[in-house]
Amino acid sequence: MMMDALYAAYPTAWINHGMRSADGTRWWDRYDEPAPQRNVHNRPPAEWAHYFDPLVVAAQKARNAYRNRYDGVHGHRDVVYRYGEPMEAEAREHAHAFHEPVDALGPDPQADDLYGGIRVVLPPGLHRIVHDSSRGAAERAGLLLDHLGHGSLPPGAAWNVTEHGALEDLAHEEVFGTAARQPATHLTFRIRPLPGRQLPPHDVKATWVRFVDSPGIEVELAGMSWRSPRRAWLTHTAVFDPPVDAAIAPKYPADASPQYRARYSEIGDLLPGQTARRTGNPSPFAGREAEILALADRVRQGVGRRAADRPGTALGQQAPADHPVHPQHQHPQQHTPRIR
């Protein structure tokens, strides 16, 4: 019912069923797929590669093929095209059936807000504080960031165009993860656009971008959100205004850029002497101290010269008027026209 509902709810979308477990393999063998032509495992990569990573899909298909053989089931092999063949051969084989290749415009890191996330198991005391709704969200987000390190934003994350997409990635990781189950907090970061930055190589898809072998990328962290492990419908959100300086961690510590090493340790903590910084609009007076002092000095000199031109006038006092003002000029009479 869930799979039928998925196909019905998204009648034109590509669908990737991913990698199946042992129970999933036996279930899949009995399942009658409503629209197998929209299953990416059944179509050439040129049709759907703007939405999914072909190498990941190929690995999923290979794993599913192994499970089919291991469990002795058919698994709709006649629909899933050519297990194990090179993609180029598959493309040539199915060239006659190609649809118009998808022309999806993915996110631009230099123009779009991006959302990435990690699953983190927090110490018990910090876990209680972070999920305590009676405390301010900004305070709890600050504690989280200090615990993780300002330079520890996830280097391998797929940075999505929506927060929901980032949280979906984390949920998918948890479902298919093989590590021992512990109550992990799903945490997302919102980074602002990176205009004018020299970005490392990155892989762009329709709704996400992934930085390849990141050397440590300085970003403006504009907000954080996290979900309760026990109550996934409860999301805590903190907005940083102005944003906080942070960094996407290097993929490999040895490849960290000099700028990253100058500010962060290998585990992403701020180095001694480095402090968290806000990236709001700078003060209009910052860096202009000498200019302001020179202007004030010119003003004082001008006042002094004008006072010297009027003998007997102390600096800062108004010189007496040359002619007395007649009282009638101070309070002119108001004449009301007579009604005739």
Results as ranks from 00 to 15, higher is better:
78 D>Q: 13
79 V>I: 14
63 R>I: 04
53 D>N: 07
81 Y>D: 10
75 G>D: 08
51 Y>M: 03
91 A>I: 03
78 D>I: 04
60 Q>A: 09
88 E>N: 08
97 A>E: 09
95 A>L: 11
98 F>C: 01
75 G>F: 06
58 A>F: 03
94 H>R: 15
72 G>L: 11
62 A>C: 06
66 Y>N: 12
79 V>W: 14
68 N>F: 07
80 V>Y: 15
56 V>D: 07
55 L>K: 11
82 R>G: 04
84 G>C: 10
50 H>Q: 14
85 E>W: 13
94 H>V: 10
52 F>M: 02
65 A>I: 03
65 A>K: 02
62 A>Q: 10
97 A>G: 05
57 V>S: 00
97 A>T: 07
83 Y>E: 15
53 D>C: 00
84 G>K: 10
62 A>M: 05
64 N>Y: 01
87 M>N: 11
95 A>M: 08
100 E>A: 12
100 E>S: 04
62 A>H: 05
61 K>G: 02
81 Y>I: 13
65 A>M: 05
61 K>C: 06
83 Y>L: 10
54 P>S: 05
65 A>V: 08
51 Y>T: 01
75 G>C: 12
83 Y>P: 14
61 K>S: 06
71 D>Y: 15
81 Y>R: 15
100 E>L: 05
58 A>M: 12
60 Q>F: 05
68 N>T: 02
70 Y>G: 07
52 F>E: 01
83 Y>I: 04
91 A>D: 07
99 H>S: 08
91 A>V: 03
98 F>E: 08
83 Y>F: 14
79 V>E: 13
61 K>I: 12
71 D>R: 15
